[in-house]
Write a protein that binds this DNA or RNA. Structure first.
Length: 476
RNA sequence: GGCGACGUAGCCAAGUGGUAAGGCAGAGGUCUGCAAAACCUCCACCACCGGUUCAAAUCCGGUCGUCGCCUCCA
């Protein structure tokens, strides 16, 4: 840890204020963020959340924290079962397919692999122990239909995140279920008939409650108390509230010291969501925009603000990130490879090679990022570097090093070309011929012909860019 | 109804007491055969009304508007 760095502060949802991070163990951070339920494609809203926490992890490592990051995969769930039934395939198969799609999306967005990515189905014994522990302490009870519920009234600190006045009052909309002692109680285990999809457990055949997996995985991989727990703002209640209740009731100690939540992506003033049907999948967005552009779009707003999704915003993001990448492309970006394809890679970057950076810019960057991850401000610092590089009035080597490093800390893929030129590659022979013709025309000062070829190429969707190195095709 | 967030230029978006970062779009200019890129210049009475203060986008009160959560949710 470098003590000269500004102290990292984050908005802690527990106390609704920005707080300086004090870790349990000096120099180490344990972080858990909620992952996907693999039943359908991820959309831009999910991308925002995953990018935000990816940037947090990258920044934590940048300022020297030994960070252990866990993100789960919910691979057993009613939504998966229902969707699989609809498709006529086994739920495990659907979950497997969607998990691969999720990984592919994460790779396209250059999101690092967590150190652990546990699946719910691989942590059942841990969940059983968790439930039994709660039953033993009378924080949970079994019902005659083999459900197990958490007894919310037995946990006095319920409502830390949401500041509920009275749990019963808040859940008054829920239909009363006779088997439950109180409406506020939530399922740890749902009993199902033997012929239904489920698992055998000490409590009978059935399936785990949604909240349970996170609590038991956190216990398994990170311990009873962790530094930071993150997720989407829409998970605050009931998901995170119930995680706290379960874990703190069982362990009699603090569950997570800091809770961080990202704001929602909006479409036409409404939250992007599956149920609203107003979502753009990551896959779809990648057809028109680069992974870097999506990341730029996400980082151009503060992570807690709601952000409106528009094509226009994505286009602006694409132009913006292209400009930054353009400024840095002449420099050695090989030092910053894309996120690795395998998980559990902690040592991110080779820092053995001494590099010279523009310390003032780095300091400013740290200041912005340490202030609750002010990425819009951080991006402004990057644009300032790009401008100085383009002016070429200073030592561009140092500035280029700095820009490359900071782009990398924000998780931009420096190997990605500023713009995808796939179509140009597909028709390479044709374009090469046209460009050759135009070059000859220009050499003979036949500018009329040169312009005709320019117009022809421009009509096929490319801009021409002449430079001493030759002519470049840039897709519009 | 309860709890919470937000309203800053055509668009996106920082800034939370000392007088408005940055990006996109646009205008003018420099440089190029033209164009592009790059660079320079220009572009905001901070939703409204009161109040506190020497000083308010920023703090307080109110009004209007938008959104989120309240057992599918990133």
């Amino acid at each position: 840890m470098n003590s000269d760095l500004p102290k990292l502060s984050l908005f802690n949802s527990l106390h609704r204020q920005v707080e300086e991070i004090q870790t349990i163990n000096p120099g180490k951070i344990s972080l858990y963020t909620c992952g996907p339920t693999v039943y359908d494609s991820s959309h831009i809203g999910h991308a925002r959340s995953f990018i935000a926490w990816d940037v947090l992890v990258r920044y934590l490592r940048e300022i020297g924290f030994d960070t252990t990051w866990v993100r789960n995969i919910t691979d057993i769930d009613d939504k998966i079962i229902n969707r699989a039934k609809l498709l006529g395939i086994e739920p495990e198969k659907l979950a497997r397919i969607e998990t691969y799609k999720f990984w592919r999306d994460m790779q396209a967005l250059n999101i690092q692999w967590p150190d652990h990515e546990p699946k719910a189905t691989e942590n059942l014994p841990q969940m059983f122990d968790f439930i039994q522990g709660l039953i033993d302490k009378e924080h949970a009870y079994r019902t005659e239909n083999n459900d197990v519920y958490f007894r919310v009234k037995s946990f006095n600190d319920y409502g830390q995140l949401k500041k509920l006045v009275c749990p019963d009052e808040v859940v008054s909309r829920i239909e009363h279920q006779d088997c439950k002692e109180s409406n506020a109680d939530f399922a740890l285990w749902k009993g199902f008939a033997k012929d239904e999809i489920g698992f055998d457990s000490p409590f009978g055949h059935g399936r785990p409650g949604w909240h349970l997996e996170c609590s038991s995985m956190i216990k398994r991989y990170l311990g009873e108390t962790i530094d930071i727990h993150g997720g989407g703002e829409d998970l605050v209640f009931p998901h995170h509230e119930n995680e706290i209740a379960q874990s703190e009731a069982l362990h009699q100690k603090k569950f997570a010291n800091y809770w961080i939540h990202n704001g929602m992506i909006m479409v036409d003033g409404k939250k992007m969501s599956k149920s609203e049907g107003n979502f753009i999948t990551i896959e779809k967005a990648l057809q028109s925009f680069s992974g870097n552009a999506i990341r730029f779009f996400v980082l151009s707003a503060h992570y807690r603000q709601p952000v409106n999704y528009t094509e226009q915003a994505l286009e602006a993001a694409q132009v913006g990130i292209n400009k930054l990448l353009k400024s840095v492309e002449a420099f050695n970006t090989d030092k910053y490879p894309p996120a690795p394809l395998t998980g559990g890679v902690k040592a991110k970057r080779d820092s053995s090679e001494k590099q010279i950076f523009d310390q003032a810019a780095i300091d400013e960057f740290h200041k912005a990022m340490s202030d609750d991850l002010n990425t819009p401000c951080a991006l402004a610092i990057l644009f300032d570097l790009a401008k100085r590089i383009n002016k070429a009035e200073e030592n561009t080597g140092i500035l280029g090093n700095t820009l490359a490093k900071l782009l990398d800390v924000l998780g931009f893929n420096l190997q990605e070309k500023p713009l995808s030129s796939q179509a140009a590659v597909d028709n390479k022979a044709l374009y090469d011929f046209l460009l050759q013709q135009r070059r000859e025309a220009r050499e003979l000062k036949n500018f009329a012909k040169a312009d005709q070829i320019r117009i022809l190429i421009e009509q096929s969707g490319y801009k021409l860019k002449d430079s001493p190195q030759g002519t470049e095709l840039i897709p519009v």
